[in-house]
């Protein structure tokens, strides 16, 4: 192997891969959106169903609050704020990368090979495949709950605080996106393990929609330091709501979201590359 021509090519490769990836992602997504909208009735039904599935979760919370005034010391609007921010981040990540949990199936039935034949990064193709517009259901449901909670919360909504909500949504989306990607990379080895990542995505969402005071300290530590989902909404939301963080971490930790998101994305990218490289050398 001639190594002298390797590095320029690799550097060039990175740049073009990113551009190619975005381009291909956009192409495939547009195609799926078009084909989804061709069957409008079916799309509306699935979107409504997606909305309803998420709404039922919130109905359960409402039913709880029909019996109590506060859960773990948090009022309904406060829980709704956690619910909305977490649901929005997960919804966006699910919309953008939700099809990645099909990777194991693709490895099993051999259709991953087909993606390797096309002049576009495999990641972009897997992520965009079967782009499901119906997932707007979850996003709109979360937005509704979030909007309601914002009007009910006893918080002075300055521009800075609103910006923090936007920032935590972006970081939360990135964190959940990294989890989706890492889970997909894991399926290069365990093709039937698609459900494991549900624990971290949907399970993480179920966790984050309740106040951290509800859970055991060790669990909260786990989602802060091991799988840092706490940065999706807990830490920044606690600051917005003026609540102490149950672990008693220094205040600046609340603003580490972007750094944590970047780190997780980098880790997910490495896991993906490693998984794909493994696939290309073993074919399974």
């Amino acid at each position: 192997m001639a190594d002298h021509d390797r590095w320029p090519a690799v550097r060039e490769g990175w740049r073009t891969a990113a551009a190619q990836g975005l381009y291909a992602y956009g192409l495939i997504v547009r195609m799926w959106v078009r084909s989804t909208l061709a069957y409008r009735a079916s799309f509306v039904m699935m979107a409504v169903g997606n909305f309803a599935a998420c709404a039922l979760d919130f109905v359960a919370i409402l039913l709880m609050f029909s019996q109590i005034d506060a859960l773990g010391g948090f009022t309904l609007p406060e829980v709704a704020f956690l619910y909305g921010t977490s649901g929005l981040s997960l919804g966006l990540a699910d919309l953008l990368l939700g099809s990645m949990d099909r990777l194991g199936r693709r490895v099993r039935d051999g259709t991953l090979d087909v993606l390797l034949l096309r002049p576009a990064p495999v990641f972009a193709q897997v992520a965009a495949d079967r782009f499901a517009l119906r997932r707007l259901g979850r996003i709109s449901q979360a937005l509704l709950v979030l909007g309601w909670s914002v009007t009910r919360l006893d918080v002075d909504w300055t521009a800075g605080r609103l910006l923090l909500v936007v920032l935590m949504t972006v970081c939360g989306t990135a964190i959940f996106g990294a989890v989706f990607t890492t889970g997909a990379a894991f399926q290069f080895w365990a093709q039937d393990a698609a459900e494991v990542q549900n624990s971290f995505t949907y399970g993480g969402n179920a966790l984050l929609q309740y106040p951290p005071t509800v859970f055991a300290k060790d669990l909260v530590r786990g989602v802060t330091f091991v799988v840092p989902l706490a940065f999706v909404n807990w830490l920044p939301a606690l600051r917005l709501l003026g609540r102490p963080d149950p672990l008693g971490l220094p205040g600046w930790v609340d603003f580490l979201g972007p750094a944590v998101a970047a780190l997780m994305c980098a880790g997910a990218a490495l896991a993906w590359r490693y998984g794909l490289r493994g696939y290309r050398s073993t074919g399974s």
């Binding site: 090979d113 034949l117 290309r280 050398s281 074919g283």
Partner: peptide, 9 residues
């Protein structure tokens, strides 16, 4: 064939 097409290394 998979090697010739770049699927396998």
């Amino acid at each position: 064939i998979k090697m010739l097409t770049g699927i396998l290394v």
